[in-house]
Amino acid sequence: MLRALAFDVFGTVVDWRSSVIAELTEFGREHGVDVDWARFADDWRAGYVPAMDRVRRGELPWTRLDDLHRMRLVELLTAAGVSAAEPEIDALNRVWHRLDPWPDAVAGLTRLKERFVITTLSNGNVSLLTNMAKHGGLPWDCVLSAEIFGHYKPDREVYLGCARILDVAPDELMLVAAHPSDLRAAREAGLRTGYVHRPLEQGPDRTVPRPDDDEFDVMATDFLDLADKL
């Protein structure tokens, strides 16, 4: 019996790209600099996977996502020739705490919460995810993060750690995500899987392919559709 749902957050629950581009554009306006902020946002987001790999290889100690994001932000600002004071960089880095939910997210989560325990399961650190929930009105029962387990997704320890903390068997827990690679890793750890299609995550000009209809336990167009199917 399915008892709990764990949600990937960036791209699945919140529209990270539009939120980050909007704040970067305002930052540029305030500093009088003209940069391709959409590309900047994409480069910023793309940098965190290589940074996590540096931690896995032992080149960096365990590092919160906030700090990985800040390292990449400084690199990108320097490459773009943009100078800013440390407090301004800190404030800009916290844009990841202020991401807006997809339009269906709050209503869908509220419905799902009536029947299941719902939690985050993200590489974002706990403070980031908590602040994001406050900002967006996300009705989590609890906030779980890779930070708690000392591993990033897709490491097996994150998925099994979530089940352990919620006191459910792995097959009583479903990972909900818009990213097939995350779901495949969760499935390998024994979790059930729910795919939600977010075609605009990478922007209106980049197509996000759908996996095969039978690859995951549930295939949904959004959280309201997921609630209907569960």
Rank of each mutant, 00 (worst) to 15 (best):
L2C: 03
A4H: 09
L5I: 02
F10I: 06
G11F: 12
T12Y: 01
V14G: 02
S18P: 03
S19W: 03
S19A: 11
A22W: 07
E23W: 06
E23H: 09
T25G: 06
F27I: 09
E30K: 04
H31P: 00
G32I: 09
G32W: 10
G32M: 11
D34A: 11
D34C: 08
V35Q: 11
F40P: 07
A46L: 10
Y48L: 12
V49A: 13
P50G: 13
A51C: 09
D53I: 14
V55Q: 10
V55Y: 14
W62Y: 06
W62I: 08
H69I: 08
H69G: 07
M71A: 14
E75S: 11
E75W: 14
L77V: 06
T78P: 04
G81C: 01
G81K: 04
G81R: 04
V82I: 13
V82L: 04
V82G: 04
V82F: 09
A84K: 13
E86M: 02
E88H: 00
V95I: 15
V95N: 01
L99N: 14
L99I: 15
D100W: 00
P101Y: 09
P101A: 12
A107E: 15
A107T: 15
G108D: 14
R111E: 13
E114C: 12
V117F: 02
T119M: 00
T119A: 15
N123I: 05
G124I: 07
S127L: 12
L129A: 05
T130D: 13
T130W: 14
N131L: 12
M132G: 10
M132D: 04
K134E: 15
K134S: 10
G136C: 03
G137W: 15
L138M: 11
P139K: 10
W140N: 00
E147H: 05
E147N: 07
I148S: 02
F149T: 12
Y152C: 06
K153M: 05
K153F: 00
D155P: 02
R156M: 10
V158C: 13
V158K: 06
V158I: 15
Y159C: 05
C162Q: 02
C162W: 06
C162D: 01
A163Y: 03
A163M: 08
D167W: 01
D171R: 04
E172D: 11
L173C: 03
L173K: 03
L173H: 07
L173T: 01
L173N: 08
M174P: 01
M174G: 04
L175S: 01
A178L: 00
A178D: 01
P180N: 08
P180M: 03
D182K: 01
L183T: 08
G190C: 00
R192M: 01
R192L: 04
R192E: 03
G194V: 02
Y195N: 04
Y195G: 02
R198D: 04
P199E: 11
P199F: 11
L200W: 09
E201S: 05
Q202C: 03
Q202A: 11
P204E: 13
D205F: 01
D205K: 00
R206S: 11
P209E: 06
P211T: 08
D212Y: 13
D213F: 04
D213Y: 10
F216H: 00
V218E: 08
M219T: 05
M219E: 05
M219P: 11
M219A: 07
D222F: 13
L224A: 08
D225Q: 10
D225G: 10
L226K: 06
K229G: 01
K229N: 08
